[in-house]
């Protein structure tokens, strides 16, 4: 460990603002793209499921109408 205390670690020898700004924005951007990609997956999954259910309903309705 290079730092004596947690406060030292945060201060980064006086460069804390720049170091944490870099690491913070980096984490933010990486998390952002990850979360939005995962959200896309969820959205596509649900839309496919919805479509399938819709077709199921249409099929059923047609069968009932035919009877």
């Amino acid at each position: 460990m290079q730092f004596d205390s947690f406060a030292d670690f945060i201060a980064m020898g006086g460069y804390g603002f720049y170091v944490w700004l870099s690491f913070g924005s980096c984490a933010l951007i990486l998390l952002g793209i990850l979360v939005s990609s995962l959200n896309d997956t969820k959205r596509i999954f649900s839309s496919v499921k919805q479509q399938a259910q819709r077709e199921e309903r249409i099929k059923k309705a047609k069968q009932e109408a035919g009877q």
Binding site: M12, G13, G14, Y15, Y18, V19, S22, F23, C26
Partner: peptide, 11 residues
Amino acid sequence: QKDSYRIIFIH
């Protein structure tokens, strides 16, 4: 560069 160089690890 003291501790500011740590940005290298992501830059």
